[in-house]
Structures are given as C-alpha cells and as structure tokens.
Amino acid sequence: MTDPTPGAVLRGAVDLSSLRNRPQPPAVGASGQDGVPAADGAGAASVPSLVIDVTDASFPQVLELSRTVPVVVDLWAEWCGPCKQLSPILEKVVTELGGRVVLAKVDVDANPQLAQAFRAQSIPMVVALVAGQPVPMFTGAVPEQQVRDVFAQLLQLAAQNGVTGTVDAGSEESADASDEAPAEPALPPLHAEAFDAIESGDYARAITAYEKALAENPRDADARAGLGQVRLLDRVQGLDLQAVRDAAAAAPRDREAQFAAADLDLSGGHVDDAFSRLLDLFSITPADERRPVRERLLELFGLVGDADPRVLTARGRLASLLF
C-alpha cells in the first residue's frame, strides 16, 4: 500500500467488473441478502455486524458499501491453519475501529468466482475495497502490530479518496433479538484447554488436549479436526519458505523434506500442489516404506474435507497407485 490512488494500485491486476455488474440480490430490511448492507449514500450505513460473510452473489452490495466506508476482504478457507490465526486479529482490529472499517469474509471454497477475481493464489489473502476499487494489503498470517499499521495506512488512503463514512453495526431490534438468543453451550473442558493453548501459541499443549479428548471419545469429530489443524500449525511454525522449497527440490525422495514442503503448500492455500507433491513421493517410494506417506496424505485430506473435489481427485490417484 504505497500508492495513494486505489485505481492505480491494482489497475490491470484485478478485474471485478463481472461481479460488479451482475444483478444485485434484493435487500431485506436494513441489510441485504446474506446480511450484506447497501450504503445509503449519505456517509453512513447500517450493517448487522462489523464482520460479515460475503458470497459471489452478494458481493455487488459490498462494492457499493465501500463507497461509504473501507471494506477489508478476508479470503480464507476452513482447512487453512494460518487463516485461523489471522481472522481473530482482523476481527479485533476492525471492532476497535468502531465502524470506520467493515470486514467482509469470503470462503474461497464456497465462492470460487470471488477467489478467481481476486487472483487468490494463496490464503489467507487480505484485500481492501475503497470506492469500489481493490487495494492490496497482505498475504499470509501477519503479526497484530503489522495488521494495525496496514489498517492505519488504509484509513489514510480512504480519506484521500473521500471515503470517510462510518457504519452502525446492528439495530435496536437485532440487539434485542441477540439478548434473547440462548447462550452457546460451553466447550468441553479438553476442547477449551486446546483453544486456550492455541491462542497462547502453545501448540504442543493443544495437541495433547485434543489427543486426550479423542482417547476419551474416538468419535469426537471436532477433536479430530482440531487435532489435524493444530498439528499442521505446529509443523509449519518457524519454517523458512524458501529454505524448505530448496531442500525439497534438491531431494525429491527425502520424505521429511517433501512433508515440510507439502505442509507449507497446504497452509498457503496451494492444495493441489501439496497433494501432487506427496503423491509423487508415494509413487517413487518402495512399497514397504509407503505407509508414512499415505498417512500424511490422509491427514491432509481430512484437513481439506473429504467432499472437496481436489481431495476426490487425489484419492483417485492414490487408489491407482495402490492397485
């Protein structure tokens, strides 16, 4: 974010015209479909929350909202470990700004047109919208202070382009409804321990907590999913991307080198690359040494989701290699 003019920052890099020009879904009450508002054009807008989920269909309303207030777009996926690190930081900073910025969350798996429009080669990817124009912010999980610094630059850029409005998050009616909503059930103790450990960066303790939860209940799907995600976070923390890639390129038969590269591929959103890397390793590994590679593949399949088409394709290739 070094250019003060949003149009110049990404001119020719991101084309949102196909999404901008599609028919907008009808508004419902104070907010549009999917809880996305339309700005009132008078320097203020009403939104159900400062953090909203956005779809391919509702995106035109977000573009319109960005003429009133900067909209930060968080492109993420459920299986993406770094996304889970970054999202709480984004939400915290947006909430503290008190309506001067809105956070729009886009699940790239559910909204492929938006992922393609923003050219999301890896996630998490964060882009801002100012007056309908995309402005690059950053890719990957970054420290909270860096997020704050980039948001400060975004507000300055927005002001230079006349986008200085605010939003009112929720109405009295929605607040009353929220008050009447039943409280969410408390997390099981071991799950709560794992969450606390993840927030403090103690992944080893989180892994232990999830393993205990699975020992108590082998059918605990949430614990199994959480265990896979935190194991990935633990493995990739502190890794140097270029060093890992160089090591993997130099030693295609080195299992640990390929495992590390696949972990970084997956955590960065390069799902097909991660699967292809491990399948290639599986194909050249002696039959009596293949088990660890197969187990790592199955673990990564579980992180992405068995119904994902990329997993189905990779499973098909794995089956052909097995038989």
Rank of each mutant, 00 (worst) to 15 (best):
P136A: 00
D176P: 01
E184F: 06
P136V: 09
V108C: 01
G201Y: 13
Q113S: 12
Q116A: 14
F118L: 07
Q113R: 13
V150K: 14
G201H: 10
L114A: 06
Y203A: 05
E184H: 00
A186Q: 05
E173F: 12
Y203T: 02
L155N: 04
E180W: 08
V135P: 03
E193N: 09
A204Y: 02
A110R: 14
D202L: 12
V147H: 05
Q153C: 06
D109T: 05
A117Y: 02
D196F: 11
A120W: 04
F138T: 14
P185Q: 13
Q116I: 01
L157C: 07
V167Y: 04
E144Q: 15
F151P: 00
A177G: 02
A204H: 09
P136C: 04
A110I: 03
A169V: 01
Q153G: 14
F138R: 09
D168T: 15
L154W: 07
P189I: 14
L190I: 15
R148C: 00
S122H: 11
A159T: 07
V150E: 12
L187W: 10
M137G: 09
A175T: 09
E184P: 06
S171Q: 05
L155C: 07
A181N: 04
A186T: 14
A152Q: 13
M137H: 02
V130T: 06
G140I: 06
M125T: 15
P188H: 04
P185G: 08
L154R: 03
E144G: 08
A192Q: 14
E193F: 11
E144Y: 08
N161A: 07
I198D: 06
V163L: 05
V108M: 04
E173S: 13
V142D: 05
V167D: 04
H191V: 11
R119F: 04
I198W: 03
A120R: 05
P189M: 07
P112G: 02
S178A: 15
N161F: 01
S174T: 12
Q153A: 12
M125D: 15
F138V: 10
P185D: 10
Q156V: 14
A120G: 02
A194S: 04
P143E: 06
V127P: 09
A177L: 14
A183Q: 14
G140K: 14
R205Q: 09
A169P: 03
A186I: 10
Q156H: 12
A158P: 00
F195S: 14
G201L: 08
A194V: 11
I123A: 04
E184D: 09
N111A: 05
R119H: 15
D179L: 14
A177Y: 00
S200K: 10
G162I: 01
Q160C: 00
A186H: 09
S122M: 07
A131H: 01
P185H: 11
S171M: 13
F118A: 11
T164E: 03
P112W: 05
A177K: 12
V130N: 02
A197C: 10
P124N: 03
Q160A: 10
L187H: 10
V163T: 13
R205I: 02
Q121R: 10
V127A: 01
P182V: 10
D176F: 09
F195D: 15
G162R: 00
V147T: 12
D149Y: 06
E172K: 08
V108W: 11
P182C: 05
T139P: 00
M125Y: 15
V150I: 15
V126W: 06
A117G: 01
E180H: 04
A177C: 01
D202E: 13
Q116W: 01
A204C: 06
A169Q: 03
E193Y: 07
D179M: 14
Y203R: 08
L114N: 05
